[in-house]
Design a binder for these strands. Structure first.
Ligand SMILES: [Mn+2]
Ligand SMILES: [Mn+2]
Ligand SMILES: [Mn+2]
Ligand SMILES: [Mn+2]
Lengths: 247, 247
DNA sequence: ATCACCTGTTAGCCAAGACTAACAAAACCA
DNA sequence: TGGTTTTGTTAGTCTTGGCTAACAGGTGAT
């Protein structure tokens, strides 16, 4: 029983797998663990030896595998992180359950205690507070409805004119000559996204609109000393924070 | 220039580091990269060779290191994930900036495209929608104010009686005999948290209150066929969803 | 010109965590 | 009881990504 420095993600996943297996199938065999983790049985054996050395599992050659009390504690820590993160991805971000599980299981090992804690509180808050639930509904309607946010959000104040206007992310195509704006997001996929990011239009960058062609079919920008030229389509895909309107 | 299957997190981080270095210091030397990533220079050289083989950086022995266009594109993808996640942890979850950066830099490699996309939309939404911003303020006041959520949330409907009541997570200590409840969260740290998780009180579990000692100083529960007994303090630390009140 | 220092490279080592192929033990079946 | 199948272990290999120690190339000071 060697002292545990910090469990690697692989070992944490083995522990988690064993936990779920004994929970559901009553016993955990090498074979089950291998299948659950999509590895070969030959990879499981040495992992079991390591976990046994750490005092986290009871493991005798060719016998059923079981968690020690300490291993159980450790496994539960991992599982509860896994569940919380899954809930977040599934219920808040509305990711398909399989992807949500995958993302959760990848993140569960690296998230700081503080990050984890606040995330759990956030999930709880947004689920339990009726107002939070309402907001979440609006968000889901927006996100799920369509992928051009400047056109969506009918139920959300973001879609209304007036006070909300100044908080809204607007397409670069709507910006006037001379304004400096902050890039918020690139609303494009694939080749166009690549091209735009390639040109240095990263979220957080500040760009200035230098010139706009008649009919707004071409936009000349300046970013950090360099000029670049966008087509109208490209400019529509660059979402920016509108410039401050100080009279 | 070999075909890129999928970059490892280590290589993505090297790429990211180079990107930031050329962005800020104009040149990236092995020494700078080593310092930025907290590794020895001897570890950097082979990584550079691999990145060069993948066609992502320009690297001649003992020369300054630079990104190829393809490398730049790849690096920007990583950087923009890094930034989005950092924003989430910092601005939404209110994690200290250093921890936020750490969490973001660990997650940025594993999050699915869909997860990333929805998360970015969520951040945007909650920042741009005035109502979202208000809710976020309430959340921050709750989370930052204190760590016993059943006592906090004065400004939030969660703290008010009436309709909100039924959505609230309540301490197990407030539950009546015979009720079945869903464990939401363990509001305890250290040894007590361990003890409770140890006893199987994981979020998602269903427990039944079997018996309550006079003065509510001891709670007997049943979970999945097993009985367990909690002290009053312990029962107060177990936050549960209250049972449905169907008359 | 030479020496010292800084930087980067090489060689050689290690651990983790996967794999295949070969082998061994149990269980099952006839 | 003896053969067959299932299951698990072992041995040996590979890649990744670290490390230290030794070495090499360049730059500047004396
Ligand atoms: Mn995992
Ligand atoms: Mn997991
Ligand atoms: Mn990273
Ligand atoms: Mn990063």
């Amino acid at each position: 029983m060697i002292e545990a420095e910090r469990l690697s993600s692989a070992l944490e996943d083995y522990l988690e797998t064993i936990y779920e297996l004994v929970r559901h199938q009553k016993v955990a065999r090498v074979r089950d663990i291998a299948r659950a983790r999509s590895v070969r049985a030959a990879s499981v054996t040495p992992a079991m030896r390591r976990l046994a050395d750490l005092g986290l599992i009871r493991y005798e050659k060719r016998e059923y595998i079981d968690l020690t009390p300490q291993g159980q504690r450790e496994a539960q820590r991992v599982v509860s992180r896994h569940q919380a993160l899954t809930r977040f991805f599934k219920n808040v971000l509305k990711i398909p359950v399989k992807t949500a599980e995958g993302d959760a299981c990848a993140m569960e090992h690296s998230l700081s205690a503080e990050g984890m804690d606040h995330l759990v509180r956030f999930i709880e808050f947004v689920h339990n507070c009726p107002e939070g639930a309402r907001l979440l509904d609006v968000f889901h309607a927006c996100v799920l409805a369509q992928h051009q946010p400047e056109a969506s959000c009918q139920r959300c104040p973001m879609g209304q004119p007036g006070k909300a206007e100044e908080h809204r992310a607007v397409p670069l195509s709507a910006i006037d000559v001379g304004a400096q704006v902050l890039v918020r997001r690139i609303a494009a996929d694939g080749a166009m996204r690549d091209r735009l990011l390639d040109a240095g239009l990263l979220p957080g960058e500040i760009v200035e609109v230098v010139r706009v062609a008649p009919g707004r079919v071409r936009f000349d920008l300046r970013r950090g000393g360099f000029e670049l030229r966008l087509t109208g389509d490209e400019a529509r895909a660059v979402l920016v924070a509108p410039p401050e309107r100080n009279p």
